[in-house]
């Protein structure tokens, strides 16, 4: 079964607390190939962040297993670096130090001090943040913080890069900029990426496949859509293509018909 690079096998999650048992995920089955960019989309509260946390190892699975490069995930680690929604940069460290912390942690034994320094700068260059390397997170904009968050994750050379709604808190223009940067980086480095999003256009533009989640409780994968668009994709060139429009329509149709949003009364 676990031939794929990242394999999520029959995974279920149940939270128990104060006598209440809630089943969040049930029977989730997903295979991601090396170098593939996969998005997970669904309504709020459908457990898509839970799924990402399982792959990250921040949460334990209740049933089934998550396997990355033939090894079962049991705890968090830099081989599954996460870009958190709210950037999670350490405010007392400079931009450079934030990235360097991860670099030092991963390459302490294998690379010299100078190599680690160069690697930190190289990754800041990838996200075009070299100019702000000595600033503190509080001194740069939200989009810039997220760029640094991406640099920190990339610098750890993860097997799987996990993006947890990375652009959700940003304005539309900044978001578009960052999406372009992520596409460029993905084209250049060929990372395996798992991204959580609730933005349909973002999912279509960036992904090779879009995984659509049904609503909870006991959410699972409702449908997987292959996005048949050539790369490199340029925002203004692809968004009128029939394949783009069709993919977009399919995702919207799923979200509104097969898994309509939770009613206000239930929320």
């Amino acid at each position: 079964m676990s031939k794929a690079y990242l394999s999520i096998e029959n995974v279920g999650v149940t939270f128990k607390g104060r006598g209440v048992v809630s089943e969040v995920l049930r029977g989730v089955e997903l295979q991601v190939e090396k170098g593939e960019f996969v998005s997970i989309i669904g309504h709020s509260g459908c457990g898509k962040s839970t799924l990402l946390n399982l792959v990250a190892g921040l949460l334990p699975v209740s049933t089934g297993a998550v396997i990355v490069d033939k090894v079962a995930v049991e705890q968090p680690g830099p081989d599954r670096a996460v870009v958190f929604q709210n950037h999670s940069l350490l405010p007392w460290l400079s931009v450079y130090e934030n990235v360097r912390l991860g670099v030092d942690q991963v390459f302490k034994g294998t690379r010299s001090r100078a190599e680690r320094h160069d690697w930190t700068l190289h990754n800041l260059g990838l996200v075009q943040m070299t100019h702000a390397k000595d600033k503190r997170p509080s001194e740069i904009s939200g989009g810039m913080k997220q760029r640094v968050g991406i640099a920190r994750a990339l610098a750890m050379e993860p097997k799987v890069l996990l993006l947890d709604e990375p652009f959700g808190a940003l304005d539309a223009l900044t978001r578009a900029n960052l999406q372009d940067s992520v596409m460029e980086i993905h084209a250049k480095l060929g990372n395996t990426v798992l991204m959580i999003t609730h933005d349909v256009d973002e999912a279509v533009l960036l992904s090779d496949r879009i995984v659509m989640m049904s609503n909870g409780p006991a959410a699972t994968i409702g449908q997987v859509l292959k996005v048949d668009l050539p790369r490199p994709r340029r925002r203004l060139e692809v968004d009128m293509l029939p394949a783009y429009v069709a993919a977009r329509h399919a995702v919207v149709a799923f979200l509104h018909e097969r898994a309509p949003g939770v009613r206000v009364a239930a929320a």
Binding site: A56, G57, L58, G77, P78, A81, F84, L90, G102, V106
Partner: peptide, 25 residues
């Protein structure tokens, strides 16, 4: 929680976590 998670993803040692995250936070 976010900073704790950063420490976990980076796999900081307990001492590293203490000095790099817990104490400054």
């Amino acid at each position: 929680e976010d900073y704790r998670n950063v420490g976990r993803v980076l796999r900081l040692s307990p001492i590293g976590y203490f000095f790099k995250i817990l104490l400054p936070a």
